[in-house]
């Protein structure tokens, strides 16, 4: 940039499409305060009735896992097949199980 102005901080935006659903990450935007972040999210991400609720989180406040750790974090769950109902062999005549 040619000027010395500070950038507006980045916020991550999560929208609940309708009650009963989780908030879902939809993207980011720039704002200087919480109120502005909500207003910008409303104007940017809900122009077509996409939401009934907005969460805005400062991007710098989010802690994320690292893809390099994916093996360590997520591989150990792979062989735990006994956690899934299909692992168990129940005769067809037994109902509602």
């Amino acid at each position: 940039m040619t000027d010395n102005s500070q950038d507006w901080p980045l916020y991550e935006i999560f929208i609940r499409a309708r009650s009963g659903l989780d908030h879902k990450h939809v993207g980011s935007l720039h704002a200087t305060d919480a109120r502005m972040a909500i207003e910008h999210a409303r104007d940017l991400y809900t122009r077509r009735q996409e939401g009934v609720s907005i969460w805005a989180v400062r991007s710098s406040d989010i802690v994320a896992s690292d893809p390099a750790d994916a093996d360590t974090l997520f591989e150990p769950a792979r062989d735990k097949v006994y956690r899934h109902p299909t692992f168990y062999d129940i005769p067809d005549e037994v109902k509602t199980l």
Partner: peptide, 11 residues
Amino acid sequence: PAIEEDLGLAN
């Protein structure tokens, strides 16, 4: 002054 304000004023 910012893209977000373009959207806000338009609304």
